[in-house]
Amino acid sequence: MTRKILVISLLISAFLLGFTSNTYAAGGEEDKTSFIMHHVKDSHEWHFATFGHTHVTLPLPVIVYSGDRGLEFFSSTNFQNHETHLFGEEYAHEGYFIDEHDHLGRVDESSFVEFSITKNVIMLFIVLIVVGWLALSAASFYKKNGAVAPKGAAAIIEPIVIFVRDDIAKNSIGPQYKRFVPYLITLFLFVWFGNLLGLIPGAANMTGNIAVTLVLAVLTFIITNVNGNKAYWKHVFMTPGVPPLMLLIIVPVEIIGLFTKPFALMVRLFVAITAGHIVILGFIALAFIFESYTIGIASTLMVTFINLIELLVATIQAYVFTLFSAMYIGSAVAEHAHDDHH
């Protein structure tokens, strides 16, 4: 089994090196590593491979809303050089342009809101479909068969559901855990599959994008504070056991604490996943920088190794995100705050 995995990952790595080598081996030091940040960030097109001067890409829709012009749809190909597939301010189309950092701008600099289906949005849809399909087919098993031992998709989803319910929700939230289990399961599956699918070569770094982690962290923040009970708010504004004068210091700290918790959630997932992608791509870049087969083989082995670690990280980060969300919710709904004795 291990041998098979090694062989397959070596083959895939070699394949990817073959794809990218033509593009990057020729350029300068900057060009040889620029693909790393290009991969890690979001993009208006999905670039898969380059053969010589042929770019294999998926052009994506650019959707813009502005007060004066309303909702507009474009294809990302409108904003790039058809030969090199590079974006730039010189390829403006209908008053909009995408700069070399893949950032949408408006020629007349008036305000607009962007709703483009970017690479990460496509990745998001894929993850939503995978998670939704798995969960719904698991649920349909129970509808058909009733309360029996699980099979198929149910056998994959059920242990996760039980794990999230018993080990995360029940332990961290307490007696009121049942209300929050559906959110926590969805969160876990979304982050987990986002992390895992992001590791597939050519996939997007979706859960390593700060917008995605921001939304998840904000949802946890909202759920936590909407469900906050008397003891929770009392702990924030009239921290028990603290002298009145000290409250002047403690209360602002507690209020900042409300926001640092989801902020930490957001940053932790973003950093962990992005860093993993950067490390893997960094090892691949070594081959281009040194232009050596020996380094290529060594870095491929390292990439395989890091990939295995990333599988672990993908699971751990999904667990940690869900666990911390559950703990924050738990601190808000607990009848007696744990820190009453401070």
Binding site: D102, E114, F115, I210, V215
Partner: peptide, 16 residues
């Protein structure tokens, strides 16, 4: 697109 600036489009699609 910048690494630590959340894009409005992605926020929108991710949220909904």
């Amino acid at each position: 697109m910048d690494l630590i600036t959340p894009g409005t489009g992605l926020i929108f699609w991710q949220l909904f």
